[in-house]
């Protein structure tokens, strides 16, 4: 069951595609979830310990969401760019908000 010629020709493109999406969907997804947790912990309008607890739980919903999206995005570079942009935005929010007293 050898793959068809046109498929074999683009095999490396395909592999690079999968590799990029995999990195975006694993390491990237964790990064976005972690920064999302940090941003939420500092911005949710409630007592500090409550914000931290909710933020931690929400992070576990963010991560698989980003993972799936990384494989559904229109192209591999778009997946990587989306993850990087989301991480930058959430990291920025956390940084601007600063650690609550």
């Amino acid at each position: 069951m050898a793959p068809p010629i046109h498929y074999r020709a683009s095999r490396w493109r395909y592999r690079a595609n999968v590799a990029l999406r995999t990195i975006a969907g694993t390491v990237g997804a964790y990064g976005v979830a972690a920064l999302g947790a940090a941003a939420l912990a500092r911005t949710l309008p409630m007592a500090r310990v409550e914000a931290v607890t909710f933020a931690t739980m929400i992070a576990y919903l963010i991560a698989p969401g980003v993972s799936i999206w990384a494989f559904l995005a229109r192209g591999p570079w778009r997946a990587v760019a989306g993850v990087v942009l989301a991480a930058l935005a959430l990291g920025g929010v956390a940084w601007i908000a600063g650690q609550p007293a």
Partner: peptide, 10 residues
């Protein structure tokens, strides 16, 4: 996932 704790409490 210690990042919310780190962000909130250092």
């Amino acid at each position: 996932m210690p990042w919310a704790i780190a962000a909130g409490y250092g």
